[in-house]
Amino acid sequence: MQRYLTFSYSDNLSKQVYLQLPDSLKLTGDSDSELLLILRLLSGNVELTHNYSNIAIKSRVNYFSGDLVRLRNWKKDFPVLFSEDTTAEDLSIFVQNTKYINRSFYSVILAEISHFILHTKKGAHTSAFIYIYRILEKISYAFPLIYTSKTQDFLKSFDKLKELMVGDKEKKELGFFKKFIDILYKNDSLSDTSIDINLNPNDSSVREQMFKSLKEVIDSSIIHEDSTEYYMLAIKYTDMGSFIITLRNRFFHNLNGGAKNIESNKIVDSDELFSFINPMAMHWIAMVFLQVTSYSLSEFQKHRQHAVI
């Protein structure tokens, strides 16, 4: 029996920009690269169709930007997110030559992101958060392994990462991925910044309860100094993964004893709460994805140059 195709993807760029793109960066619907679909979807220029419900969504949100603003000219503006001298042609060659590498992994991530966008469109933000966490689970082991396979400089640090792969589940979730993120952003100015979650419910009392409920369940060490009481919860950049995991544990697991849980009566409306959290959580995941892909692109270009020489 043929597998049901849950999502379909088509190009949502302006005709002018679309015509300027190299062919391998265009979406044709015919065996498109999953990596390309992820990059295009997260940067906000894909029309996503959920075939079962026939819901079509013109993705406009650019999760690679902290303010989520859409790129004006994808061909010119997106490649420079990798580096100032990266061009659309560079990205095209990379996508074309790595199309079948780790394809099953990227296919899974693409599906999770697509479900996130679908549930966000429906206003089901609590459900959408589940897909954020599912993505985090998938990348928490795969990204370090992909990264180590691309760069020799990381191999020494990988010995330390392997030590974190044993032990209890909580240690593996928090420790392994957190160590990887710390290494990934070592000497990067981003590590000193924060992911800022603005709480904007209509009622000030609800905003205060939401803020307190989140602050009570997370470790104070991951809260950035830029936080503004009751209005903005700033999470240290490299600790955003820990924040997501804690939210999953303290809201969805609702365990008895030990750590404090998020009480549903205090947050009033979970969909509204997660509507504030989800965009910034996905932004952070998108940036980690970009960072790992950037290393893969850099290593690909090095090997290609050596092959030519």
Rank of each mutant, 00 (worst) to 15 (best):
S31K: 15
R3S: 14
S275V: 01
L233E: 13
K76S: 12
G175P: 05
N97T: 01
S114L: 03
F274N: 00
V166L: 15
L37I: 13
L145V: 05
F82I: 00
K266W: 04
D226T: 13
F177E: 01
H119R: 15
T126E: 15
S31V: 13
E225N: 14
A124W: 11
V46H: 03
T6F: 15
H125L: 12
F82P: 02
L42Q: 06
N62W: 07
P22Q: 03
Q305K: 12
F252W: 08
H306Y: 13
L174S: 10
P201W: 11
K121C: 10
V308D: 08
D85S: 14
N261W: 04
Y63T: 09
L21M: 11
N249T: 07
K15M: 05
A234P: 05
S31C: 07
I218D: 11
S59C: 13
S149D: 02
S53I: 04
N265W: 13
Q301F: 00
Q20S: 15
Y63V: 02
N249K: 14
Y231C: 13
Q152W: 00
I139H: 10
R250F: 03
T151D: 04
W284A: 10
L161F: 11
E47S: 12
K138G: 15
A142Q: 13
L35Q: 09
F64R: 09
I130W: 06
E163P: 01
S83W: 01
L42W: 00
Q209H: 12
N265S: 10
I130E: 10
T238M: 08
L36D: 02
E170D: 12
K156S: 00
I223L: 10
Q209W: 07
F143W: 08
N256Q: 15
D85G: 01
A56S: 15
L35S: 11
D269W: 02
A286E: 06
I146W: 03
V69P: 07
L290A: 05
V206N: 03
F274A: 02
K179H: 12
I309K: 08
K138F: 15
E225P: 01
A124N: 15
T148P: 00
I146P: 00
L27M: 12
L68H: 14
G258W: 14
I222K: 10
G175F: 07
V217H: 04
Q291T: 13
F78W: 12
L110W: 09
L174T: 07
V217R: 01
M280P: 00
P79V: 05
V308S: 13
L110G: 07
K26W: 14
I267P: 00
S227H: 12
A128G: 15
D271F: 04
A281V: 06
F78E: 10
D67P: 11
Y106P: 09
H50R: 08
I277M: 02
K160G: 11
G123N: 14
